[in-house]
């Protein structure tokens, strides 16, 4: 294994329009609070989540979802 990376997901609640795409895509990473905007459930996930995070970022209509890498 070549240096497995840790992924740090982020959800920008000020940009969020509550479409729910991230929650439908990666429900163990993203949720909605009672107001309907994004909350990030976990500070970091492993490499196996990369495709899901990419998809969540791509589907978000308000460009509120992103992630950075560490490791």
């Amino acid at each position: 294994m070549s240096g497995a990376k840790t992924l740090l997901p982020s959800g920008d609640a000020t940009r969020c329009v509550g479409a729910g795409q991230c929650v439908r895509t990666a429900p163990d990473v993203f949720d909605q609070d009672d107001g309907g905007t994004v909350v990030v459930l976990v500070a970091e996930v492993d490499e196996s989540h990369r495709a899901l995070l990419d998809e969540a970022a791509y589907l978000c209509p308000a460009s509120a979802i992103a992630f950075t890498e560490r490791g």
């Binding site: 329009v17 479409a19 729910g20 439908r24 895509t25 998809e55 209509p61």
Partner: peptide, 18 residues
């Protein structure tokens, strides 16, 4: 398919989609 544009895109994307 998840990326169709039936509900639009951007800040006005359908609020009732789900």
């Amino acid at each position: 398919v998840r990326n169709h544009l039936t509900f639009g895109f951007g800040i006005h994307q359908c609020i009732g989609q789900n």
